[in-house]
């Protein structure tokens, strides 16, 4: 067992974990953050994407020990009293159907817009290539991300 200290959605905790525990397992099973789902076992689908120290990471591709000392933000910690502009835009643009890809998609999109403040359609499509959605055909996701980006530019 290894001891780690991780801040998850603003709450610090120290936990004993098996060294092989993936970050996503730690979040779901030990921290109860089940808002972050698992869609694959080969780190290809992006459903598990969270922010680690502000950058998007596939939490199934990281061991929990690698997040020792880090600040993790999951979909459950994104709204700050009110919905994040990205969450609002996903709702407004019908950018989700079953919603399984949505937590990862939103976190990846937040990171994308952090890097490129005014992404083109192509930049959004390429920027989200690591996140699969089987329901929406992506068109409304692209619209939501661009709209949220505009909102976030205005707000800053």
């Amino acid at each position: 067992m290894t001891r780690i200290s991780v801040s998850v959605d603003g709450t610090e905790a120290v936990d004993e974990i098996e060294p092989r525990t993936l970050l996503v397992q730690y979040l779901r099973e030990q921290r109860g953050r089940t808002g972050t789902p698992v869609g694959c076992d080969t780190s290809n689908c992006g459903a598990c994407t969270v922010l680690v120290d502000g950058r998007a990471v596939k939490s199934c591709a990281l061991l929990a020990v690698q997040a020792d000392g880090a600040e993790v933000t999951t979909i459950q910690g994104l709204a700050n009293g009110e919905l994040h502009p990205m969450q609002k835009a996903f709702h407004e643009h019908h950018a989700l159907q079953c919603g399984y890809c949505t937590p990862g998609m939103i976190m990846a999109a937040v990171d994308l817009v952090g890097e490129v403040a005014d992404p083109s359609e192509q930049q959004v499509r390429e920027g989200l290539e690591g996140n699969l959605c089987r329901c929406t055909g992506y068109q409304n996701i692209v619209a939501a991300v661009r709209d949220a980006a505009a909102e976030m530019r205005g707000a800053s």
Partner: peptide, 21 residues
């Protein structure tokens, strides 16, 4: 109409079967 379903899905307040402990 915007969907009633979305509120819990965009905030991670979901009940996927595997979430149930």
């Amino acid at each position: 109409r915007r969907r009633k379903e979305d509120a819990h899905l965009i905030t991670g307040q979901t009940t996927w079967t595997d979430n149930i402990q």
